[in-house]
Nucleic acid binder design. Structure first.
Lengths: 334, 334
DNA sequence: CGAACGGCAGAGAGCGCTCTCACACAGCAT
DNA sequence: ATGCTGTGTGAGAGCGCTCTCTGCCGTTCG
């Protein structure tokens, strides 16, 4: 019907005021007399005026949008692992509240990485959330150099680095393994996560801490948080120590994979082998048997990340790393 | 280090040419002498120049970004259902190829809906992908009025409406139910999806078609595609007809819920009751027993949606609805 | 009664870019 | 020499908005 968008100018003409006044009304400045505001509002309404954000951000130097970057290959980000989705949801919720837009970027490929860098450094976003950090990602440094606010999920491995939100990975893993120890398990293995990610490293550390203190030998296989890698790792563990009586998997998806291998190998869970996961994904509760796991507030992590980056973007200082608590959920698998 | 971004002007000064020439080089116009191009490129490099996209889109009237809108409540979009994630991945992949940005919007709440409308109509995006359509969403009309290209996943219920990509929902359901009939099942129930979504409607239609043709009575319960709703529906069906010997669930998540209820009620699958799902989510293959299901190319749907909206945005016409094929994956549950 | 003030509106200068147009200059035909 | 092309470059006008600055008015105070 009306494909041409009216400009401020048009609205001003219609309302019989100046552009500046319309701008004031649109942006809710208190410096406008109520009756004039009224007239302008009506004109806005009648013309269906919507501000041109490009023009606005050109002058304000703000974009009112935030990039959420997943540095994983897309296949990984959105397999059946609901972690990523939870983060998105958390971030998105907070963005809604702040009336900011969420620009989603997957930077799995090298090409993608370059694009992300170009885009995020071009002041087209007010800040960047890095959902997770692998080893030495060059992005944080590039952004810092440009003065673009960055926060990241999972504290940086090296220390220093950008502000971050993390969770009690060490503590959570300790809780899980302590639970296994307390129930009398002697040969407790672990399926660790990728060792270039802080969550992978920390959960393994937690496992080691408890084993060391309780005088048990550690039995380790490494996965990449996916179900298949969990299954593979479980087979490996069974080969390494057929008599193991417990497994702590650093992610629920890996635990689910392990459960299946255990079943195939004729072990009963938890009678022969106890299994504890990490994440408390929805599927954990539906597993056979229902999976004992460590719950962490991944959704809150998304929200917290969003809040932080928004604070940074508006020039405030933030106190990080923020560490979110975890909680052991005891079900039937251990 | 260098928080102020250099402008075209600065680059021009450094290279000793005019703004226009730098612009030409940056945008790859052939109208520039190689040696001058060289000089300009070096200046760009040295200053770390990155074009200001806001300024560019102000004049070009393009935003180089596309909105992907999920009209569901966030909790729904990203529960443990990986469908949404697959769409995102597909869309994202195509956007990468086209060098466009993906702006993700969840419009579950009424407030969100309004925000989405404001944002998408403000020419801040070149087009909009509506991931799914519920009954009478006002957004397509609003966008059409503004001349903003829209495509949607799942053809509109009412007919007409925006261009869309859909899949063989009727045909897929028919295949599934025919499989049940062929294996001699007599009392075939269905757990239908929400009847305000085309996927829900069509899959039920497919079920009805086959039952009608094979002289069986239909037994229907309705869910909302989620696992819990599947479980609830299954209990209901068992009450309605304790002797049923097959269930066609309109989504794998519902089938998974049904599987669990069946197990709890002491039925063996597939011996007592055969179960077929729809979607072929990763978890289907890992279910106990592995779920027979209808696979559809949800990822391709994302890609197709992206391609369509990009075509529309560049003024081309498109031929829709595009219908993607489905395929019956026979595993052990039926 | 004039000066000072405070609340409100308008004028106008950009934000950083693209794009049209004009123009300079080379090469060739007239 | 004059005119014509055609190629390559620069000048300059905006795109639609915000925001500072200026100036108007009505009020209050010395």
């Amino acid at each position: 019907m009306n494909a041409v968008r009216p400009t401020l100018e048009k609205v001003a003409a219609r309302a019989g005021v100046s552009r500046a006044t319309v701008s004031r009304v649109v942006n809710g400045s208190p410096q406008v007399k109520p009756e004039i505001r009224e007239v302008v509002m009506r004109a806005v309404e009648e013309l269906g005026y919507v501000p041109n954000l490009a023009a606005r951000s050109l002058v304000t130097q703000r974009a009112d949008s935030i990039a959420l970057v997943f540095p994983e290959p897309p296949a990984r980000v959105f397999s059946d692992d609901p972690m990523f989705a939870s983060i998105i949801r958390g971030v998105s919720q907070e963005m809604d509240l702040a009336d900011k837009q969420l620009v989603l970027m997957l930077s799995g490929s090298p090409r993608g990485q370059e694009r992300v860098e170009r885009y995020t450094t071009s002041r087209h976003v007010d800040g960047v959330i890095l959902a997770s950090l692998h080893g030495a990602d060059p992005l944080p440094a590039a952004l810092a150099r440009r003065g673009v606010p960055v926060v990241c999920g999972g504290r940086p491995i090296a220390g220093g680095g950008p502000p971050s939100v993390d969770m009690e990975n060490v503590g959570g893993a300790e809780q899980a393994v302590r639970h296994l120890v307390a129930s009398g398990r002697r040969r407790i293995a672990t399926i660790a996560g990728p060792q270039d990610m802080i969550a992978g490293i920390d959960r393994l550390t937690g496992y080691r801490n408890v084993l060391r203190d309780s005088d048990r030998r550690s039995i380790v296989a490494v996965g990449d948080f996916t179900r298949d890698s969990g299954a593979t790792a479980m087979r490996q563990l069974l080969r390494d120590d057929p008599a193991l009586d417990a497994v702590f998997a650093a992610s629920d998806m890996m635990a689910l994979g392990a459960l299946q291998v255990l079943r195939q190998s004729g072990r009963r869970v938890p009678d022969d082998v106890a299994v504890v996961g990490f994440d408390d994904v929805p599927a954990a509760a539906y597993a056979e048997p229902p999976l004992t796991t460590v719950r962490h507030p991944i959704h809150d992590m998304g929200r917290e990340l969003a809040r932080l980056v928004l604070s940074l973007a508006s020039g405030e200082d933030v106190d990080t790393p923020v560490i979110l608590p975890t909680e052991l959920i005891v079900r039937e698998s251990a």
